[in-house]
Nucleic acid binder design. Structure first.
Lengths: 231, 231
DNA sequence: TGTTAAAATTGGTCAGGCAACTAGATTACT
DNA sequence: AGTAATCTAGTTGCCTGACCAATTTTAACA
């Protein structure tokens, strides 16, 4: 005998029901906060007994998908699915302080994990800076490349959570810190040269895997941003 | 043979039943491969209906604790290191890795800046944990207090940016890490006790401003969460 | 002894019932 | 009018008893 494989292992009914309800939720048929049909209604709709529905709901409740309230009904739980946050009204100091810590971690992990492609991507941002300085191109581009450097650095950590956090930090266009730095850089040729120089130094340290130096350079870099802001 | 104990109050019946059976398994009353009493027997022993027993067994089966075979019985599963829910293990690792770094910073800053109110707020979350353990209240509350501890700790840094980052990390209800931890804590009394104990230790270290110890305890705490997930 | 068939056991599902609870409408009171 | 207490319809929580389907055990038989 060849195929003794259990071909279609029958799913238990409560599992099928749980899957179906879960699919309905994931496909936005029911959104967070929505009330599911009553147990009796579900039973009638799916042509099963209320007992089976309850077994399925118990599972979904344990899995934190729904919230079953006695005497009321079952509600789809709220689920936050990304690591975005806002920094609108937070102070410049706070933002810089956090960057100091986060980028320190990023540098450390980037040194451990950066791929050849990561390095190339980071290098490209520095090349971008160089070009915009040389050709006196639009300051917007300069600033974009500057931010891209830090983003690409974050990507080199290979940690999506960290990448998302970093991006959130860097994408606060409206934040006074960025506005201000943008202006400073706009006005000062020297500031642009300086920033490029610092980026190049950090990248060089990462390439040689000199963690201590890389972290120190990053620290100085951010310290410098801070001074730029307060001067 | 020692029989399972009757039921208390408050938490939903099927949850209590699942807890009891799980505890019986974790305390080696039933070892991997062992056959549990029949549903009818469990119902009679626990003085509950078979329907409630089945809801509990459904949960335990989904959580990969037992294996329910039709016409045969329920068997305790081998405790292996595979997760039952299809989930990129990388995602969990990444979240834990980031928490490790972020919470380390949080502890450091909290020690420097926590106000009397901050400390009180953190203490309150521990008191909440204590109460829910004592009164066998709904596990949702326990989990909420557990998260609140880390949130209040973040608030003690007085850095809004950091607070928001921390919140974004802790509010991932749908993330497999939280789902899984929620379930573990739900079933295991010991896990709850352990968590409270660790939180108390961290708070104590912060109060005495013992930075080194606090950071180490936090590290162990998160390491422990990690083990809980992978065990 | 080995095979087969019947019986007992066990989980799977169902229908229905009452109690406990919640939210919303209604009523009573100030 | 505004507020508090009360009622009511609807929902979940839990239980009971029954029957079905898969599996194991037992018994009968060749």
């Amino acid at each position: 005998m060849k195929s003794l494989e259990p071909i279609g292992k029958k799913e238990k009914l409560y599992v099928k029901i749980a899957q179906q309800i879960n699919n309905a939720i994931e496909s936005d048929m029911y959104k967070p906060g929505d009330k599911l049909p009553t147990e009796r209604e579900l039973a009638s709709q799916l042509n099963v007994s209320r007992a089976s529905i309850r077994e399925a709901l118990a599972v979904l409740e344990i899995m934190n998908v729904i919230d079953v309230k006695v005497g009321d009904g079952s509600y789809v739980k709220q689920r936050t699915s990304n690591f975005q946050f806002e920094t609108k009204d937070s102070s410049v100091f706070e933002l810089i302080e956090v960057r100091m810590y986060i980028e320190s971690v990023i540098v450390k992990l980037a040194i451990e994990r950066a791929t050849e492609q990561n390095i190339k991507a980071i290098e490209a941002t520095n090349e971008g800076l160089r070009q915009t300085i040389k050709n006196q191109e639009r300051i917007d581009d300069f600033f974009r490349y500057g931010v891209a450097f830090h983003k690409k650095l974050a990507e080199a950590t290979q940690n999506d959570v960290l990448i998302q956090i970093a991006n959130s930090l860097f994408e606060q266009d409206a934040h006074p810190l960025w506005r201000h730095l943008n202006m400073k850089v706009l006005l000062s040729y020297e500031a642009r040269e300086h920033q490029l120089h610092e980026h190049e130094g950090i990248l060089a340290a990462i390439k040689t895997k000199d963690q201590k130096k890389a972290e120190e350079l990053m620290k100085h870099h951010i310290e410098h941003l801070k001074n730029m802001f307060y001067e």
